[in-house]
């Protein structure tokens, strides 16, 4: 079983709405992958997130988490333990008045042995580099720090997958960078599957796979290089294109050289330098 989350022809409609929020979505997320889900507000990407751990149940189709059907009520806590979730507003997901007690909340709910909870909490806080803050009151932390505590709270449940639902939307650039660094580490070193929902294009660049949603449907799915090369389609979907990608495509269009779907500034600099080299030679 190498897919951790599997959507099969999933439809979802909110009770008070006449339009589908998720329309006939089929999707497989591979174990250990780092997937970015992009889309403007109301494109259905947050609904997609909530469908992955039984917070919402599809009206049609089936969602399997590690082979467990999210509609199967007897497995609900297994599913939520497998797929942890981090939300947008860091203030509204911290329960306790002391950092370490909040991180312990999940494992406590799962009935984990106290001594093991202690170990998990310490390890989780160290992983997100918040261990020195374990005795602090959450409301005195910065947004980025709070969000890292929230991530630690999820890791302490030892999930196989973490879904971050616009977890960086309310943070300042520094906080956003810290979160990105943290989840890359979780993905690379702990092998946790990451589903990262965002509308910041530059954050999607470090994923292995980018999924773009628009109008309740998946409209693009591929590597960041593949997806970002379709600048026109992205604009139609109400999204940005990274400046360097746009510049390198312009270079190709103007006939100065060949664009290789550039995503970072360094790549862009190298490309321009190589064009100049060729010209000189």
């Amino acid at each position: 079983m190498d897919s951790i989350i599997k959507f099969e022809n999933v439809n979802f409609r909110y009770e008070d709405s006449k339009d589908l929020a998720v329309n006939n979505v089929s999707l497989e997320i591979k174990r250990g992958d780092f997937v970015a889900v992009l889309g403007h507000n109301g494109s259905g990407k947050s609904t997609l997130a909530k469908l992955t751990n039984s917070i919402l149940l599809p009206q049609d189709g089936q969602i399997l988490v590690n082979g467990m059907d999210t509609a199967d009520e007897s497995r609900i806590y297994d599913i939520r333990q497998t797929v942890g979730m981090v939300f947008q507003n860091p203030d509204n997901q911290i329960v306790a008045t002391v950092v370490e007690e909040d991180v312990a909340f999940g494992p406590e709910n799962l009935g984990v042995d106290p001594r093991e909870i202690r170990e998990r909490v310490d390890a989780a806080l160290k992983a997100v580099e918040m261990y020195e803050y374990r005795q602090h009151e959450p409301h005195k932390l910065s947004g980025g720090q709070k969000q890292r505590v929230a991530i630690a709270g999820v890791i302490a449940m030892q999930p196989e997958c973490i879904v971050l639902d616009e977890a960086t939307a309310m943070l300042d650039p520094r906080g956003r960078k810290d979160i990105l660094k943290t989840i890359r580490m979780l993905n690379e070193q702990l092998g946790i599957t990451v589903v990262f929902i965002t509308h910041f294009m530059d954050e999607a660049v470090c994923a292995n796979r980018v999924i773009v949603m628009d109008n309740a449907e998946i409209i693009m799915d591929g590597t960041p290089q593949e997806v970002f090369s379709k600048t026109g389609d992205l604009r139609v979907a109400g999204l940005d294109v990274p400046q360097v990608t746009e510049l390198s495509q312009w270079i190709e269009k103007e006939g100065f050289g060949i664009s290789k779907n550039i995503l970072s500034t360094d790549e862009c600099v190298d490309m321009i330098l190589s064009i100049l080299e060729v010209q000189k030679g």
């Binding site: 751990n53 939300f87 999940g106």
Partner: peptide, 27 residues
């Protein structure tokens, strides 16, 4: 109210199911 609603979501996601079967880190 919005906070309460979101917090309830977050607690559910962290497998909160009332006092039954809960353990405590700090004994």
């Amino acid at each position: 109210f919005r906070r309460a609603y979101e917090l309830a979501f977050a607690m559910e996601c962290r497998c909160y199911q009332g006092g039954e079967g809960r353990t405590r880190m700090k004994q």
